[in-house]
Write a protein that binds this DNA or RNA. Sequence first.
DNA 1: ATAAAACGATTTTTT
DNA 2: ATCGTTTTAT
Length: 723
Amino acid sequence: MDVTPILDPLNDAQRAAVTSGNAPALVVAGAGSGKTRVLVHRIAWLCEVESVSPFSLLAVTFTNKAAAEMRARVESLLNHAVGGMWIGTFHGISHRLLRTHWQEAGLRENFQVLDSDDQLRLVKRIIQDLGLDDSKWPPKQVCGYINARKEEGLRSGRLQDQGDRTARQLIRAYVAYEQECERTGSVDFAELLLRSLELLQKNAEILAHYREKFRHILVDEFQDTNAIQYAWLKTFAGKENPVFAVGDDDQSIYGWRGARIENLQNFERDYKNTQVFRLEQNYRSTNTILSVANSLIDNNRGRMGKRLWTDGAAGEPVHLYAAFNEQDEARFVADRIKRWVEAGKTRRDDIAVLYRSNAQSRVFEEVFISQGIPYRVYGGLRFFERAEIRDALAYLRLAKNPDDDPSFERIVNVPPRGIGQRTMARVREVAVRSRITLWKAAENIQQSDLLAARAANALQQFLQLMRALEQDIQDLDLAAQIDHIIQASGLMRHHGREGNEKAESRVENLQELVVTARGFDLDNELYADMQPVDAFLVHAALEAGEGQGAQWDDCVQLMTLHAAKGLEFVLVFIVGLEEGLFPTGMSLEEPGRLEEERRLCYVGITRACQQLVFTYAESRRRYGTDSYYNSPSRFIGEMPPELVTEVRPRAMIATPVHHNLKTSLFAQDTGIRVGDSVMHAKFGKGVVLDCEGAGTSARVQVNFEQKGSKWLVLAYANLAKLA
DNA sequence: ATAAAACGATTTTTT
DNA sequence: ATCGTTTTAT
C-alpha cells in the first residue's frame, strides 16, 4: 500500500490527526491551516490504510457546497468514485433517514419538506386562525420561537406556560403548527433533525443498525453545531464509534442562530479518551496579517487557545484609512483596487470588500459602477428561493400529489383566476372541519351551497386545470414536465405579459428552471431509490442554489463578513470599522455577543493572503439620517499599532463630488456609454440614461423616442450605437 | 384585480 | 433612505 499521496502533503500536526487511532478526535483547526485537507486525507487514510469500507463512513457538513467539495476532493485523492459513502449536510442525511424509515418515524411516505418561506406562510396563517393579532405576534418571531424549541429538542407537548401569558400564546401557536404539519405531512428544517433523532432514540433496532453501519463519524465546522445536531451526532456515535470533529472556536460566528461554541469546548469532557490536535500553521496569510489576527482574538476569554503562525513572508503592514464619509470610503477602496489591478498585482476576483451588513454594499456598487470596476455582490435571493420558481415547483408538486396543501395554498390564485381570500377561507373551513385536505375540500364544496356561483366556477376551473396537468405530464421526463407545467399553468404567460424588466427576468428564470431540470444529476447517495421528480423537489428544498447564476469574469467580490467564512482573497478590505456598526450596537450589552463580533472580525482578517486594508467613516448616513464623529472600532485599538499604518492618499480634504455622469465599463466591450444615442430592433431609437452591473448582468436604461424609458440587459438587447 | 398609499423594519444566514 | 408588505381605493 502506497501511502505517499495521503501522507506526503501533510505537516506533522495534520499527519498526526489523519493517522490517529480509533479514539474520538478533536482537531482544533485555525483559519487557513488545512482543515478540509485533514478531513479529506483522514477519509482516504481510513479507506486505504485502515481498510474501512466507504459504506462505514459518515461525513457531515453544514452546507451542500462543503459536502460537494469534500466528496470531490476525496475522489480526486483516491482516484476513484466513492459512491457508498454518506457525505452530506445534517439536513440531507436526516432527510434520507426519514425517507427510508418514514413509517417508524411516524411520517407518511410522501412527506414534504417545508423551507423557511413555506414555514413562515404556514405560521402566518396559524396566527390568523388562532385569532391573534399579527402585529403583536410577528410571524417571524413565532417562527423563531418554534425553531428554537425544536433545536432544543422540545416538542409543544412538553412545554408549560408557567402562568406566562406570552409563553401561553406561543405554545398555542406551536401546538397548532405541529398539528398542521401532521395534517399536511410537512416537515420543516428543524423537524428533519429532531424527527430523525427521535427515530434513532425510539427504535433500538434502527439505531443498532446505523451504529453497526457507521464505524467512523466525521464532522466539519464543529463549532457551528447546535444542541440538536450535537445530540444527533452523539446518538450515532454511541460508545463504539469514534467522532472525528474538526472546528475552530475562534471562528464561531453563528451563536445568534443557535450554534453552541461549548460543543467544541466540552468535547473532551463528553467523549472519553479524546485526542486533541491543534493545527496552527497557516498557509494563507502573511506574518503581519496573522499577528494582527492573533492579537485581536487574544482579547476574547475562555478560548481553547491557539496561535497562528507561518514560515512565509512578513508582508506589508495593514493599512487603515479614516474616511470622511461612506462615499469617500468607497472611493478610496475603488482607488486602491484600481491601483492593484493596474499594477498587475492581482486579478479582480482575488479582491474582496467585506462589510458587517448588506446595506453597506450600496455605496460601493454606485462608486464601482461610476469608476468602471466590475463587481459581484453575494447574498440576496438564490435560485430556488425566487417566487416564480417556487410557484412552478408548487404546480409540479400539486400535480403529483393533490393533497399537498402548502402547494395548493401557494398557487391556487397564481396567476390570478378569481379565487380570493374569501373563497379560500371557506375551503379551509371545510378542510379543517372534515379533517381532509384542501383539494378534497375544494371538490366537496362544489356540492354544497357555500360558494357563490362565480367562485365555485373559478375553483372548478382550477381543479380541472390541475387534473389536466397531472394527465399531461404522466409520460414526460422531468424537464419536459416542468416545461409543460410552466406553459399550461399560465405562469409563463402571466409573467410574459407584464413586459417590465423584472418580469422578463422571471421569464428567464422559469426557462432556466427547465434547463436546470434537464441537467439534474440523480447520481447521489442521498437520492437513492427516488423518482427523478421527487429527487428534484428535494434538491430544490434542501439546496437553494447559487446566489447569482454564472460566475462572471473577473469581478471584485462584495460580501458580508459572514459570507466570507471559508474563502480567501489576495487583497481584502474590511470596511465600516466603526463603533456601533462593527461591532454592531446591538452586541454591546452582552459580553458574549461582543466576543462573537470580535471573532467575526478575526474571520475577516484571516481571509487575506497578502494585503489587508481597514476603513471607517467619520460620518455615515444610516436609515436616512447622518451620524457624525463616529469613533473607529475598538477592534482597531486591539491590534499592534506598529503593524497598522494609517494612510492618507489625498492631501486635500475630500469634497464630495457628485458626478451624475456615469462612465460605463461596458464602454470597453460595446462602446456604449451614458448619453449615447442607440438603436434597438424592436423599440427603435433612444438615448442611454443610466447603467448598472457588470459583465453578463450589465444593464442600461434607455429612453426610447417611441416607447419611453426601459431597462435592458445589455447582453440580450443588441443595441447599435448611433454616431 | 390592480394600483396607489400607508406602514414598518432595518446584523449576520443555511438547511 | 429604501425596500417589502399590507391596507385602501378605484
